[in-house]
Amino acid sequence: MVKVKIWGSLVEATGFEYVNVEGTNFIELLENLQLKYPGLRPQIQRGVSLAIDGKIYKESWFTPIRKDSEVVLMPFMIGG
């Protein structure tokens, strides 16, 4: 299980600021988050990023995630 921090306005969808889900990489984690917490699905479908051990990943599905990684769900990021 990987511990994932959920951002404030999504906590309503999970009930917790931190949730534990299975997943060894970016895409597995997102899939399992949606399965376990369907309330997260609209936001995940609109787009999210993951911060894994302090680095922001926008869409790299196969980015490995360790069980002890710090994982933070973030909105999909854009720049100028």
Binding site: K5, W7, A51, D53, G54, K55, E70, V72, L73, M74
Partner: peptide
């Protein structure tokens, strides 16, 4: 600084 938990979630390197 390194180790700070950023206000948006992750811990800074």
């Amino acid at each position: 600084k390194k180790g700070t938990k950023a206000s948006y979630g992750p811990t800074f390197d």
